[in-house]
Structures are given as C-alpha cells and as structure tokens.
Amino acid sequence: MKTILVVDDEQNIRFLYKEELEDAGYKVSVAATGEEAFKKLKKQVPDLIILDIKMPGMDGIEVMRKIKDEKGDIPIILCSAYGQYKQDFRVWASDAYVVKSADLRELKLTIKEIFNQLKAG
C-alpha cells in the first residue's frame, strides 16, 4: 500500500484528506507544521508528500526545498487556496501543483498519475 504524508496547518483539511485518501486506498499520515513533518520523515519516508504552501512558521516551499535537499526525490504535490503561486518559479520544483477545492477528484487524479509515472519510469 502506498503511503502519503499530508502537511497542512488546518486540522479539518488534514482530517478531510486523510479520510478521502484512505478511502481511495492509501495509507495516510498527517503533520500540522513543517517541523512536525520532518519529525515524521525521520521515522518513516512516505511514497508521496502533499504540502500546503501557506503555513505559519516554515511555509510549504521551504519545507519542500529542505526535503529535496535531505531526502532526495520524494514526489511532492504543492497545494494552495488559489492559483496565486503558479507564477512563483520555486513552485516548479514540485511534481505537481493543485489548487485546493472541496472537490478532491483533481487531487486524487494527480496522485494516481504520479504513481503511474513512477511505475512506468
């Protein structure tokens, strides 16, 4: 079973993602901040990380850079409330960028595609 780490400062969003992704057949762990994410990473490296960009303290982009530096190539999906980070070149280092929505089908589709590509590649 593929494992996914969801990093988001909003508790209900973490909860929503966990429920939905588990229903979709993944093993999900969650973290509320960048720091907490790194603690979890030390214990176990997931197959994919979903990162909210706008978080108090370390923001999603910083977290991503650090993960890429320390842990190498774990696929990362960046999320934000609106498309405003699209023009930020730092986002380009991520594997995908998804605008948050109550409708999680786009997110799930993206996850599936990334795993499919990994399998193929």
């Binding site: 939905e20 409330a81 929505s101 409708d103």
Partner: peptide, 18 residues
C-alpha cells in the same frame, strides 16, 4: 476575504461530499 474563506469552504464542501 477569499483566503480566509477558502479553507473552511474546502472542509465544508469536502465533508458534505463525503
């Protein structure tokens, strides 16, 4: 306003779907 609203909206909508 949008930024403040978006996250609660995502949870409301997301859970309503569920």
């Amino acid at each position: 306003v949008a930024h403040e609203i978006k996250n609660p909206l995502v949870s409301i909508g997301g859970f309503a779907r569920r």
